[in-house]
Write a protein that binds this DNA or RNA. Structure first.
Lengths: 189, 189
DNA sequence: GCCTCCATGTAATTGGTTACATGATTCT
DNA sequence: AGAATCATGTAACCAATTACATGGAGGC
């Protein structure tokens, strides 16, 4: 079996923080915004997770204080050791591919619903993913492809667009199929 | 923003357990196998999580003891209340779509590597997903489409095949692109 | 003066993984 | 007799979410 093991435990959050700081010094507040804007669809994170992580990274010498600003603002920059740490992470041959997908998990159990309810579930999924597709296409237009990091982000977004296109089409095509499957199960009882 | 909130907190594990028991009475050991075979790519789970959950479900009257077998084997069956609980979950309009994807997260930071290393990363991703695609195609052939649950599983697998095909193609096409992006970044410094 | 956004943190809880632990049955 | 698989559980730990908590700066 290709997955079942190694779902996390690789501490991606800390490496993502280091990777973000590799571009330019930032505060915890700024980093939080990056997570919930540019990175929200691959790795969301809240400030409540970021601030403690920054403390740890500082203590371990992977980042250092860069400066202070108004309202207690503190910016951090990456140290040489921190850069080394991200590089090692990037070269590790074990990115986690296993992911939990609640919307797909539910599909397994649609036979417990009425056929019309199952159809409605799939229809909503299709609708949702079409909406996200539109959103991604819009964001894609607005990425300034200057720094390599932005070009890589655009590259990931291209996959995101493909993904949303694919899953919305699958959900659309599967909507009547699901209804029939569930109806077939009821009849035979 | 379409995600950022509601990543979990919907307690999918317990509902998945109930959904599995909806088909037929089973032991914790059997349920674990289902999670790590049929459901491993949408919701993996270990026995260490299942046994305590079964205790809770039993206490809450959502399942009940069905029988005992050799080696202390205990099978459970779904109660009416348990079936109701899964149905309510399936009809809730909020399946979590946000997911953490470490392999894609790393792509954002490939500019911190040498161009050849970045290329190698993407090449490996393509390779990995082509392998999973082959695996899924093989599994797809071997699903006996008798019970509606199996037909729904086949439907989900169809998406899985599409997904792996799409992402492996994307990774393949992006391999030279990533290398160029990273090389471009080095030059300009 | 008030509202919004900036900015930082802690604590409690939940969900999930890893490690620890044990024993019975079946197959070879 | 020994190995593999069946079978069940607990405890420690880590990652992530939710709730709690506070205050400064800037715009209207």
């Amino acid at each position: 079996m290709l997955s079942a093991d190694r779902l996390s435990g690789t501490m991606s959050l800390r490496h993502a923080v280091l990777g973000i700081l590799a571009r330019e010094p930032m505060s915890g507040y700024d980093i939080t915004k990056v997570f919930n804007q540019a990175m929200v669809d691959v790795w969301p994170a809240r400030h409540t997770q970021i601030y403690p992580e920054l403390s740890k990274l500082l203590q371990e010498g992977l980042i250092e204080l860069d400066g202070k600003g108004p309202r207690g603002r503190k910016t951090y920059r990456l140290t040489e050791a921190g850069l080394e740490e991200v590089r090692i992470w990037l070269l590790r041959p074990d990115p986690a591919h296993g992911q939990r997908h609640e919307a797909l998990l539910r599909v397994y159990f649609l036979w417990l619903l009425e056929p019309a309810e199952a159809r409605e579930y799939m229809r909503r999924e299709a609708e949702y993913h079409r909406a996200v597709l539109g959103l991604y296409e819009h964001i894609y237009e607005t990425i300034p492809p200057s720094h390599p990091a932005e070009k890589l982000r655009a590259m990931v977004l291209e996959w995101g667009i493909e993904y949303e296109r694919g899953i919305s089409e699958w959900a659309e095509q599967s909507t009547p199929v699901a209804e029939k499957i569930v109806a077939g199960g009821k009849k035979r009882r």
